[in-house]
Computed example of a mutant assay.
Amino acid sequence: MPAFDRWDLRVIPFPGRNREKREYPVEELLHVKTADAPIGQRCNFWTGQVAAHLSNMRIDVRRKLDFNASISIRSLGPARIALIDADFQAISHRADGSENRFHLNLVQEGGMVLHRFGERIELSAGDWCLIDERESYDFTTSERCSCIVMQMPVPWAKRIIPDPGKPLIASSTCENHWTTALSHGLLAVGAREIRYNAVEDGMVADQLANLLSLALGPRSDMVTGRHKTALLRSIRQVMSERFTENSLTARDVAAASRISLRYLHQLFATQNTSFGQQLLALRLHRAEQMLADRRLAKVSISEIAHAVGFADSSTLTRHFRLHLGLTPRDYRKSRV
């Protein structure tokens, strides 16, 4: 994926594409829908379009033959607005260092659940979430979900909003009045009947970023200093890549990050968590994914336990029951 300031947004022509004159004077950079692709190829077509124009994601869907989705992207000054409407999706975003931007995601209809390092954020209609695309995360949507995504280049955004200090921030944790104002602002920008010109784009983008800054407010969970924020991101990336190692320790991660063990624990303390909690959350989340995957229905609980980094199935079962209230076997029965 190219850098944010070098978007390659050539609209790819598809058979049957509607080329009628648009009703509003806003430059639409991209508009595609899975109906443009043959039945049976729609999921692959959609994954390719999302990866090329929105974010590097691995997408799994339930309706592989007739998956229904659409995406429209248009400019908004230094930012972009994406309007997305789709059937159920299970998505994994894996950071690769190429995406230097924030996504401000507002749910219009339906809902979604985001996961990141054991953190679980549920969004319903009217809720929004600020996502740091420089870090990895997963999410699933409802059977039908519509959302508005404001894509903001990090260098521009940081002129206005404070460094959030964590990769996911939900509107439910922010200043209520400004949260509502930001939601209304995003809905107005996303509404096709709104008429505004390119000259106003920059002002609109700035105003939305200012509302986001007010909504974030003074945050107790912020890590002061860009160096610490970048270091936490690097530590999380190391853990994401190595959590399946049964013998992984905090000392290993500290060594890989070139910091002392004490400093690693201090960094996690600023986030009100610990290395052990984060490692456990990563393993449990991956176990959930594997247990819910129909393709892995014949893989034993013991094999899954070892695959995600647990010493044995009894350890997985104990932690799984403690955090989810079900045994791995019962959870699999309820999902597969």
Score class of each variant (00 low, 15 high):
residue 6 R to T: 00
residue 12 I to L: 01
residue 17 R to G: 00
residue 20 E to V: 00
residue 21 K to L: 06
residue 23 E to D: 14
residue 24 Y to H: 09
residue 30 L to W: 01
residue 30 L to V: 01
residue 34 T to N: 01
residue 36 D to V: 01
residue 42 R to Y: 01
residue 42 R to Q: 04
residue 42 R to H: 02
residue 44 N to F: 05
residue 48 G to M: 02
residue 50 V to M: 06
residue 55 S to M: 11
residue 59 I to R: 02
residue 64 K to D: 13
residue 66 D to L: 08
residue 79 A to E: 08
residue 89 Q to G: 09
residue 93 H to I: 02
residue 102 F to Q: 04
residue 105 N to W: 11
residue 107 V to M: 15
residue 113 V to C: 14
residue 114 L to N: 07
residue 116 R to A: 13
residue 123 L to P: 07
residue 124 S to T: 12
residue 127 D to I: 01
residue 130 L to K: 07
residue 131 I to Y: 04
residue 131 I to C: 06
residue 142 S to A: 14
residue 154 V to Q: 15
residue 155 P to E: 07
residue 159 R to C: 09
residue 166 K to N: 10
residue 176 N to D: 11
residue 181 A to Y: 10
residue 183 S to Y: 06
residue 184 H to E: 13
residue 194 I to R: 15
residue 202 G to F: 05
residue 207 Q to R: 15
residue 221 D to Y: 03
residue 235 I to C: 06
residue 247 S to A: 15
residue 256 A to K: 10
residue 281 A to M: 07
residue 284 L to H: 01
residue 285 H to G: 15
residue 286 R to L: 11
residue 290 M to A: 11
residue 291 L to S: 04
residue 293 D to P: 05
residue 298 K to T: 10
residue 303 E to M: 11
residue 306 H to P: 13
residue 307 A to V: 03
residue 317 T to A: 15
residue 320 F to P: 09
residue 325 G to I: 00
residue 327 T to R: 07
